[in-house]
C-alpha cells in the first residue's frame, strides 16, 4: 500500500497537477518534501512510494534525494538549525556565532541534542548576507529564516520550541 498516497491524496494530486500529465517525474522533488515532513527524513519506504507515484525507478528517486542537501537520508533532530557560515556571513561574525551556539546547545556540528530536538548544521549562502549572523530552521515540514541573530534570539526560539513540544507531549 502506498501510504503517502493514501495519507495525502489531495496534496499528491495538487503536486501532480502542476506538471503535464506525462511528466510525472517532475513531481519527485515536491513529493520528497511531502514525505520528509512526516519523519524529518526520507525513509526507504517513502522512496519506493514516490517512485510508484512519479512512475520512475526507486533508484532515480533515491538519486535525487541524495543530490540535494535539503533532503536527509538519515534521521536527525526534529529541528535542524542550519547556520550559514559562507563567506559574506563569516565576514559579519557567523563563525563566532556558531561557536556560541555550539556551546549553548552543547553539541558539535552534525550532532543532535540529547532530547532529539535540535541538530546543528553548517550550510552555504542562504541569500541573507546582509542580515548575518543567520540560520534557517528546517523541521515539521517547514523552513523558516532567522536573521540578525544573537545568542539571546536563539535562546528564545529554542526555549519556545521546547516548550511547545512539551505541551504536545
Amino acid at each position: 500500500m502506498n501510504e503517502l498516497l493514501s495519507k495525502y491524496p489531495q496534496e499528491v494530486q495538487r503536486i501532480l497537477a502542476r506538471y503535464p500529465a506525462e511528466r510525472k517525474r517532475s513531481a519527485v522533488m515536491p513529493l520528497l518534501f511531502l514525505a520528509q515532513a512526516e519523519k524529518n527524513y526520507i525513509t526507504p519506504q517513502a522512496i519506493a512510494e514516490i517512485a510508484e507515484i512519479a512512475e520512475v525507478s526507486a533508484t532515480e528517486v533515491a538519486s535525487v534525494a541524495g543530490f540535494y542537501t535539503l533532503f536527509h537520508e538519515e534521521p536527525g533532530g526534529r529541528y535542524r538549525i542550519q547556520v550559514c557560515t559562507d563567506l559574506p556571513c563569516v565576514l559579519r561574525g557567523a563563525d563566532r556565532f556558531l561557536q556560541e551556539l555550539k556551546a549553548y546547545l552543547g553539541i558539535e556540528v552534525g550532532q543532535t541534542t540529547a532530547d532529539g530536538m535540535f541538530s546543528l548544521e553548517e550550510v552555504k549562502c542562504l541569500a541573507a548576507c546582509h542580515r548575518a549572523p543567520m540560520f534557517q530552521l528546517q523541521g515539521d515540514g517547514q523552513i523558516t529564516y532567522h536573521e540578525d541573530q544573537t545568542l539571546e534570539t536563539v535562546r528564545a526560539l529554542v526555549e519556545e520550541l521546547r516548550a511547545r513540544a512539551g505541551k504536545e507531549a
Binding site: 525507478s57 538519486s63 543530490f67
Partner: peptide, 10 residues
C-alpha cells in the same frame, strides 16, 4: 530501459 543504477550524492 532499466534505470536501476544511479548516482547518489554529488
Amino acid at each position: 530501459a532499466d534505470p536501476v543504477l544511479g548516482f547518489s550524492q554529488r
